[in-house]
Design a protein around this nucleic acid. Structure first.
Lengths: 214, 214
DNA sequence: GCCTAATGTTGACACTGTGAACTTCCGCTG
DNA sequence: CAGCGGAAGTTCACAGTGTCAACATTAGGC
């Protein structure tokens, strides 16, 4: 992938460093990652990194940003493919569940990256600055899914407000617990079942009503 | 608090180190905490800590364990006081909401400790070993609150199974997002409103049904 | 009252993030 | 095409860190 470096100038150090950092973090978590090691892996002196990043944490921030972009992409894909072959479910609900599933799926597949994204260094990526398109995207995708629920008549419009936060809460909570393991490492099968139940629960919470209590 | 150390032996180094670590972590997060600094603060050589902890991470684990104990205590208190003066709400629902509120409250009041509890070093505290009474407790308290919902007829028994995970997911998710700030630092007032809405949403999700879809 | 084991101490090592000063080389201007 | 300015990398240096090994001190049981 990286050709043996002969030239004095690397050519694409920034991206190479980010890629190396992703590998290292993916392997051992954000704590088991050092600037020097990343530089070593790329074949460059430790301080070269400072031409491209203010900080060690700036590099991690870049990793987080990359993670957010990949997360959004994954959600996009999942939603699109859910529209295609859903299993008898209304399209809007299928898409909604697909979005949630993709979020959790990303977290489970890339736990350490996910941690980095929501650690202190990822903070800048998460603030909804107008420029931060990528970050905004997963939030936006969720919004689209919810709008579709309204359009299909499942979610009453007056309940639409604040729905993103609720869904995000559920999905993010499940992802966090899956990683940080309140439940001791369930099988993928069990997790899938739990997630399905959770998404149903979410739909009821959003769209449903309490039975006449008495 | 700690009397000026004159004796060669500290007397209660273990606890002193944990307390110091709690302060340091609370001040600057788990990353801005060093074994040496904690030892310095206690007035003891760096390596003295190794008589009480295998590792730096073992110390953090102790901090996490302490956090879990305090969290459970806070939930216990909140639930008890909710039984006393609830505002026209059924007791079981009031207690349930109090438990959730206490969880989030702890996370918001002690963000860095909370992070430590759910970071890699806190992992041992979270596994439900039979001995790990304290850890189990907040889960157990949640279970009690759910049982009360069943007893009061709000939650149908066949929906009881798996309810802990759902509630935990919501509450933990909201706590995480509140700390890690998807939403840019809302006021305490806003957060309280959001939490209230979220708990209502949770009750509906657990106990409610979809309106006859058509 | 001594011996042992628990508790603390000192010294050392490899490693980290980062600043300062120096070198190499790409790309532009004359 | 010469040469130069600045971007991109390098080396040296420093303060801190976690941790190991060897040593010192002391509390408590025989």
């Amino acid at each position: 992938m990286t050709p043996p470096r002969d030239a004095y100038h690397h050519g694409d150090l920034r991206n190479a460093l980010v890629a190396s950092a992703v590998r290292l973090i993916e392997a051992g978590g954000p704590s088991a990652f050092s600037l020097r090691e990343a530089a070593r892996e790329v074949g460059v002196s430790a301080n070269a990194a400072y031409r491209h990043f203010d900080d060690k944490s700036a590099l991690i921030t870049a990793v987080a940003a990359d993670g957010f972009a990949r997360l959004a992409e994954r959600m996009r894909r999942a939603m699109a493919s859910a529209s295609a072959h859903r299993g008898g479910e209304p399209a809007s609900i299928a898409r909604f569940k697909a979005a949630g599933g993709a979020y959790v799926g990303f977290a489970v597949d890339h736990p350490e990256i996910f941690r980095a994204m929501f650690g202190e260094c990822g903070a800048e990526c998460r603030s909804a600055t107008p420029e931060n398109e990528e970050t905004e995207t997963s939030w936006t995708l969720l919004g689209q899914a919810l709008d579709a629920l309204v359009a299909d008549g499942f979610l009453r419009p007056e309940r639409r407000v604040g729905a993103e936060l609720k869904v995000w809460t559920v999905v993010h909570g499940f992802a966090s617990l899956s990683l940080d393991g309140l439940t001791a490492a369930p099988t993928q099968r069990e997790r899938k079942a739990a997630l399905e139940a959770l998404l149903d629960f979410t739909v009821v919470g959003l769209c449903g009503d309490l039975p006449t209590a008495g």
